[in-house]
Each structure stands twice: as structure tokens, then as C-alpha cells.
């Protein structure tokens, strides 16, 4: 069954007809041609499809498009201002936080969303004092970024990039 929904993607409003079974990921990639979001596993096990959906980091492969009518999606392609790069993206370049680049858009979106969570004081699995302040140590960054697998093993660069962005 088809349905027509509205999605705002990287600042551009779209009306798109989707199948009720269409995920946000496939709606973006196959129906809107937005390939700045990547499909790595299609089952919520790798993080490559991470976007910011209504401001939260979100796996688009586990989300039906029909349930997100009216949502605002920001992909790695829409993070920067105009032609410029988002500071997190620049930090990934500066620290070589990637190799093949396939997980990278998801890593970048995840980092942006994660830094916002940390700013709001969210704890993590490695936070020792649940009632204390959130201090983004290296272990905190690693844990909070663990929903994004990188098979090239660029974690050292990703850590350095996110650390720098967190301190900016």
C-alpha cells in the first residue's frame, strides 16, 4: 500500500510516495536520491544509516517512513552551513577519522547527536557517578560512539576528531 508523506531533508521539503513497508533509509536513498545516508546492515546493527531525525540521532533503517510523516531529517550532507563543513566533519578530516568513508556520514551524524546528548547531561554505560556531571573522557566518547561500527578500524582518528569537536 502506498502513502504520500512529507519529509524535510537537509532543509529541503519533499513530498514523497512510499510503500508502507519503506524505511526512511530506503525513502531517502531510492525515492529521493539522497545517498548521503548509507546502508550497511539494514537491521540496526552498524550505525551507517544514522541521521538526526527531529534533532535526535536515529537509525533510518529501523524506521518506517510512513510513521515519520512531517519529520525533519538532517544527514551528513546537511550538517554544514552552505558549502562549509560542520566542525565535526572538519575534525574527521583533520584526524583522518575514516578510510573507506562508508560509515563516515553516520559517524559524523552520530557524533553531532551524541555531543548534544552529552550537553544535556545524559549519562552513559561507562559513567561512574550517575548523578555527577558529564565529562567526555576518551572512554565516554568511545562508549557513546559504539553504535557506529567502522570496519576500516579508524576508531583512533574518530576518537581524536570527536574529542576535538567536544572541546571546541
Amino acid at each position: 500500500m502506498d502513502a504520500t508523506i512529507r519529509l524535510t531533508v537537509d532543509g529541503t521539503a519533499h513530498e514523497v510516495t512510499v510503500d508502507t513497508r519503506t524505511t526512511v533509509l530506503d525513502a531517502l536513498r531510492e525515492r529521493l536520491g539522497v545517498t548521503t545516508v548509507k546502508k550497511g546492515c539494514d537491521h540496526g546493527q552498524c550505525g551507517s544509516c544514522t541521521v538526526l531525525l527531529d534533532g535526535r540521532r536515529h537509525l533510518t533503517c529501523l524506521t518506517l517512513a510512513v510513521a515519520q510523516d512531517g519529520a525533519e531529517v538532517v544527514t551528513a550532507g546537511g550538517l554544514g552551513e552552505g558549502e562549509g563543513l560542520h566542525p565535526v566533519q572538519q575534525a574527521f578530516l583533520d584526524h583522518d577519522g575514516y578510510q573507506c568513508g562508508y560509515c563516515t556520514p553516520g559517524q559524523v551524524c552520530s557524533a553531532v547527536g551524541m555531543l548534544d546528548e552529552a550537553k544535556q547531561g545524559h549519562p552513559s554505560h561507562v559513567t561512574e557517578d550517575l548523578e555527577g556531571d558529564t565529562d567526555l573522557t576518551d572512554d565516554e566518547i568511545r562508549e557513546r560512539m559504539s553504535g557506529n561500527l567502522c570496519r576500516c578500524g579508524a576508531y583512533a582518528g574518530i576518537l581524536a576528531a570527536v574529542r576535538e569537536a567536544a572541546q571546541a
Binding site: 550505525g47 544514522t50 540521532r57 529501523l62 554505560h125 553504535g147
Partner: peptide, 21 residues
């Protein structure tokens, strides 16, 4: 503060993205 096991269990589950969803 009052139910730390719940907070810890949630944070031990899945990933940051999935916990947001």
C-alpha cells in the same frame, strides 16, 4: 538517583541511536 539499576540497564542496552528510538 532513585532507580540506578534501571538507568544502568538501559545504558547497557543496544546503542545510543537505538536508545533514542
Amino acid at each position: 538517583s532513585g532507580l540506578p539499576a534501571l538507568s544502568r540497564a538501559l545504558l547497557a542496552g543496544a546503542s545510543g541511536q537505538i536508545r533514542q528510538q
